[in-house]
Write a protein that binds this DNA or RNA. Structure first.
Length: 573
RNA sequence: AGGCCUAUGGUGUAAUUGGCAACACUCCAGUUUUUGGUACUGGCAUUUCAGGUUCGAGUCCUGGUGGGCCUGCCA
């Protein structure tokens, strides 16, 4: 379990799911809390799943309960072992540990037995209609459906057919087992929903032993029940399935079928999934981005997948805290991406060691500093955390600073270098700009500056004769030209400029909202310490942004991914 | 013969269940600062509408309106 005291403020309100669970405990409906996180292993987990994970594990944690990780592997046509592995890695990365790892496929035998029991009790039947016929006979929102001609076939016949479905005698799609509920129900889910379909697909865990597979509605609730889940928490899209969820448990209970050692059926509670501006969290659309080559893979740092965010430099603590602070309710929502960034920066500000990196260099020569001489200064690693100590930075006559930190004849609102103005080089000296050298095209190629030996370490110089202390408005970062290391820096922006990428005009798709400039790769000159920093460790390039080193170098030079920029409240002159 | 859910600042959530509408983010204005970062201070609402009950309504009642979801052999 994650270290919750630091990342989860205690003043946050208790949301309605937590309240409902508290009431269930108080009323004695349940005497413990058991939850589950039930992903379908058909893709990678994303930021939206993280909300469900936080709620599922969080609600159990709150009462010292248990949470199972259950792979919802009921549709072998879509599911893969690789996803099963990746899901576990992502859940662990977020900081959660499950009580048991289970699989819906663990329950296939039990489910089959119960399905037979429901057939015998007259609650289910084998339907020989085609999918098209079933759809046509379902009716619509305003018209009742019509019963299948097979709805009232003899129990023995359904039982026999169902056994033969299982034995693999029939072709895919030729028959289904349906629950016999109410073809006139205003809730379409209850118009005799399918419980089993025939599929000869190879299952990652059960291989070819089954030629029928249970539908979600049939497998899920019973899986909860078997595992002793007390609270089955899911998103709003399953709200209308709750009557069916409860119908199965009620019918089974009536005919004396129930899992061993479990008293009460689970309670399903639905909450609104969390949307975030500029982000897409549809597995189908994310897959589209990958398959279409719009991103470089599921773990592309621009992807809202947990693997992508991890590579981007997000910390699991920030993600958990984000969802904790976002709250849980039942209304549609679209949380500003800025909120995510705020929580991220807050976490990174405390953790990231500071470094100096120049992304767009311009030469600076300190004309009054001896040729060939160097000095080493200690630079604080993190002003927010004294314990992070210092590192050495090398100073010399030839430096590199950010091109944008010089501006010819700038006004007073510009705090950095301009002719005659003095700035502080962080951790080194104050320098004054005397002259800018330009090439034939008028581009500035070099700045000639002088340093003040009395400002060693960047400190204020001693007071003058009248007791006045000279001050400087700006502090800029720099690297020494000879010792600077080459690096590749990847600057990421929103993948989608639009606040709601899914909200597109007629004739367009979400792909039309793709930001063509979502990544910019630039060469940079960075301080030597950065060559020693390890992938995955949060860093801050001072005055720029938070970065993280990528696991893979580019032609031998280190690569740094921009996690999120620093806030910039300046209105630069 | 449609059903279910939902409505509180720009955004996301609160409101001890009938008692001064609160917290966070954004934005704006300042203070501090060896990062134009951080930190700190201040500012930003007729609770979807119309009636009603009440000393008192975001909360209760009546009637509207807006938004979301549902007709897979997906989950």
């Amino acid at each position: 379990m994650p270290d919750t005291d630091a990342s989860q403020p205690t003043h946050l309100p208790v949301h309605f799911v937590a309240q409902a669970i508290d009431e269930d405990l108080a009323s004695g409906r349940f005497d413990q809390v058991v939850t589950r996180f039930p992903p379908e292993p058909n893709g990678f987990l994303h930021i939206g799943h993280a909300k469900a994970i936080c709620i599922d594990f969080g609600m159990a944690q709150r009462h010292g309960g248990k949470t199972n990780l259950r792979m919802d592997d009921t549709n072998p046509a879509k599911e893969e072992q690789a996803f099963i592995d990746a899901i576990q890695e992502d859940v662990r990365w977020l900081g959660f540990d499950w009580d048991a790892l289970t699989y819906a496929s663990d329950t296939f035998d039990q489910l089959y037995g119960w399905a037979c029991a429901l057939i015998k009790a007259g609650h289910a039947y084998v339907d020989d209609q085609t999918a098209e016929q079933i759809r046509a006979n379902r009716g619509d929102l305003n018209v009742a459906g019509t019963a299948s001609p097979f709805r009232d076939r003899p129990v023995e016949e359904s039982l026999d057919l169902f056994a033969r479905m299982k034995a693999g005698e029939f072709e895919d799609g030729s028959r289904v087992l349906r629950a016999k509920i109410d073809m006139a129900s205003p809730n379409m889910v209850l118009r005799d929903p399918a419980m089993y379909r025939i599929s000869h697909a190879h299952h990652p865990r059960t291989g070819d032993t089954w030629s029928i597979y249970p539908m979600y509605d049939w497998a899920h609730g019973q899986g909860d029940w078997i595992e002793g889940v007390t609270h089955s928490l899911c998103d709003l899209s399953f709200e209308i399935h709750r009557p069916l969820y409860e119908w199965f448990i009620t019918r089974l209970t009536e005919i004396g079928e129930r899992p061993a050692g479990v008293d009460h059926g689970p309670r399903q509670i639905e909450f609104a999934r969390g949307n975030i501006t500029h982000l897409i969290t549809s597995k189908r659309k994310l897959k589209h981005l990958v398959d279409g080559g719009h991103v470089e893979g599921w773990d592309d740092p621009r992807m809202p997948t947990l693997s992508g965010m991890r590579r981007r430099g997000y910390t699991p603590e920030a993600i958990v805290r984000f969802w904790t602070e976002a709250g849980v309710a039942k209304r549609e929502n679209n949380i500003e991406h800025a909120k995510l960034e705020n929580v991220l920066r807050s976490d990174l500000n405390a953790k990231a060691q500071r470094r100096m990196a120049v992304l767009d260099p311009i030469k600076v020569t300190i004309t009054n500093y001896p040729e060939g001489q160097t000095e080493v200064f200690p630079a604080q690693n993190n002003p927010e955390n004294e314990a992070d100590g210092t590192r050495d930075v090398v100073f010399g006559r030839n430096l590199l600073i950010e091109r944008g930190d010089y501006k010819p004849n700038a006004n007073r609102k510009f705090f950095r270098l301009t002719e005659g103005r003095e700035v502080r080089l962080r951790w080194a000296y104050w320098i004054k700009c005397n002259e800018a050298i330009t090439d034939a095209d008028g581009n500035v190629t070099e700045l000639l500056c002088t340093y003040d030996p009395e400002t060693r370490g960047g400190d204020n110089p001693p007071p003058d004769a009248e007791g006045k202390v000279r001050k400087v408005k700006g502090t800029i970062h720099w690297v020494q030209a000879e010792t600077a290391v080459d690096a590749q820096v990847r600057l990421y922006e929103h993948l989608f400029e639009a606040e709601n990428p899914e909200d597109v005009p007629e004739g367009q798709t979400f792909l039309d909202h793709l930001n063509p400039d979502s990544v910019t790769v630039v060469p940079a000159k960075v301080e030597p310490a950065l060559a020693q920093d390890h992938p995955g460790v949060p860093l801050q390039f001072e005055r720029h942004a938070y970065f993280v080193r990528d696991a893979e170098d580019s032609d031998g030079t280190p690569v740094f991914n921009r996690t999120v920029t620093l806030r910039d409240t300046s209105r630069k002159g």
